[in-house]
Design a protein around this nucleic acid. Sequence first.
DNA 1: CCATCTTCCTTCGAAATCGAAGTTATGGCG
DNA 2: CGCCATAACTTCGATTTCGAAGGAAGATGG
Lengths: 372, 372
Amino acid sequence: MRGAQGDLLRLVAAGHAESRAELARLSGLAASSVSLRVEELIGSGLLVEEGAGTSRGGRRPRRLRLSPSAGLLAVADLGAHHARLGLLDLSGTPLVVEERPCEIADGPEATIDWMAGAFEDLLAAHGPPGVPLRGVGTGIPGPVDPGTGRVVAPSRMPGWNNFPVAERLGAHFDLPVLVENDANLMAAGEARSWPKCETLMVLKAGSGIGCGVIVNGTLHRGRGAAGDISHVRVRSDSSVTCSCGHDDCLEAYASGAALMSVLNEQGIEVRRPADVVALVEDGVPEATALVRNAGRLIGEVLTVLVNFINPDAIVVGGSLSPAEPLIASIRAAVYERCLPLATRDLEISTTRSGPDAALLGAGSLLLDAVLA
Amino acid sequence: MRGAQGDLLRLVAAGHAESRAELARLSGLAASSVSLRVEELIGSGLLVEEGAGTSRGGRRPRRLRLSPSAGLLAVADLGAHHARLGLLDLSGTPLVVEERPCEIADGPEATIDWMAGAFEDLLAAHGPPGVPLRGVGTGIPGPVDPGTGRVVAPSRMPGWNNFPVAERLGAHFDLPVLVENDANLMAAGEARSWPKCETLMVLKAGSGIGCGVIVNGTLHRGRGAAGDISHVRVRSDSSVTCSCGHDDCLEAYASGAALMSVLNEQGIEVRRPADVVALVEDGVPEATALVRNAGRLIGEVLTVLVNFINPDAIVVGGSLSPAEPLIASIRAAVYERCLPLATRDLEISTTRSGPDAALLGAGSLLLDAVLA
DNA sequence: CCATCTTCCTTCGAAATCGAAGTTATGGCG
DNA sequence: CGCCATAACTTCGATTTCGAAGGAAGATGG
């Protein structure tokens, strides 16, 4: 499982390689060495050979897959009022995904212990017998210190500040543990769906605004807050003070929460970002105008970032992302204002990985820990 | 010179390793393999053993250095009206650096051929006899396509658009050729002076405004324009149209050229950014106010980027950088407006590599090509 | 349907790499 | 000053990895 052996497994699990030949190309090892190694991995039950792939003009490759019994990963994505939970095999394929209500405001101990219980439930109900759990991971709607696995200065998670989430979760399972910001997980998940993109910006537009950055194919964490765009100052006529203490933060104008509060003030009742999307689809002009304005503001911020890191694609996800005017106005702002060189082949589109992106990302990152 | 052999040389040349033991630690090879390899490299005259290093509690390491006769690199940094030219040994140490007048507006053919001639001059005058030239490189004050070595849509370089600079330079020397944006080279040069920083933003404040980004210790190129911040829209009362066609670009307010044109309109004659710095040092209030405002605008843009990529340090270089109020107001803006997590250990300071940063960066990047 | 080209994978001797044990040099400490 | 802990190399047999050659399986094109 360690070292070069792990490298090969990782390449197969991550979906980068499907045959011995591809492994040889990607790992840099000689074809003969790869064959030897693969034989061992098959012998130890971690890899299985599964039919033949499609020919590329010569003999067909013998397709390799991680054995379904090689192990499981239990992953979660915590939101403010609910959590998505899932069980993945080591290739990152979900066996089961569930959404359960869960109040993050109940505090870290209660929430994490609840999560551990939910994982046990899932395992009992859907885990194939004899297949070991190999790692657990969760996304958190706030900044996470990459070194310690602690939550750092979250804005809407009372009681969580500086809490050692990874440690607490690890106390339930003696296994590799991953704790990461939810937008970062989403980015890691999307990255698997955009294999040709080295640099990726993944926007999470939900009740809050988050963003994850993939540079050179790997998640860029910075000090744990990398990708944060919610507290950028935007150009606006009025003046709103954000929860962070500064004026005119993007989040105060363009987040789902901000849109909802404006709509509610106007007497249009909404309770979740999805309600806003529904209003837009029903052609309610107030909602459409608001969403369009939010997209413009987000787009103007992205403009700066696109010039700066020249991503290959911008992916928009989160519960607000199905609203067409949002992405349309983001596109308009970015294409209008960015440098031609930066937008020449830039793709801006909605999620390819769907609502489970964060869970898939957790799986992808956990794998690195499990196969280290 | 190839493969693993090159890896060892690179580690020594880049200053990361000074002894066999350090090479073993950093390269991941077994100590015995390193010894063998090093012996060969010494035998072929590329490495030399030079005295003993300082003990870390046991036997002293035998210090390794690249042989002064291992090779030379010829590097240049083109500006609008002058060029810096230098000769480096393979460890990146300059043997000579000269500044010569040179009009980039003369067009690419004339400029590049002139550069080739200047390199020959330097070699004849300062090159130790028998030491071969191993690579040439140059910085360009405009975007460079990393794949082709062509200039792409530069703003103030008439006749250069889409010109294959690398190819033309390569026609003079049958050697590895490097062509890169000047701010990017500066960033690569600074990176060597900030070994503990994985993520670095290097601002070049001269007649224009440029920026290079180091992510994970390596230069982030994007599509060739990465790091561009000069055409970000800034918040301002008036409205100025930039050469790029958009309104209120940062460059139109905060670049050395913009400052100079305002001062000249006010009847204060300045010809180069350095003159502005001199005025500030003399306490001329118009100049100080302008520079302070420029710093504030730049700082507000950096705010967004600091939240986004969480650099370990921001380095300010370029001919405007000695002006104290510039960096002071950049600091003020960034520390005031960024997230605490992002500024907690963020260092903002002037260049450590000095005016030759770009040449050193060219050396550093060329080395990778030469020892590939 | 047969020759030819590609690609995938294995075989096997040569070469590189490892790693455990040993050697040399040094600082610290009683 | 002698002893020990530590670090920097070396030596040398065991192991891995390589790579050239060849076999297997399929595409292509007459």
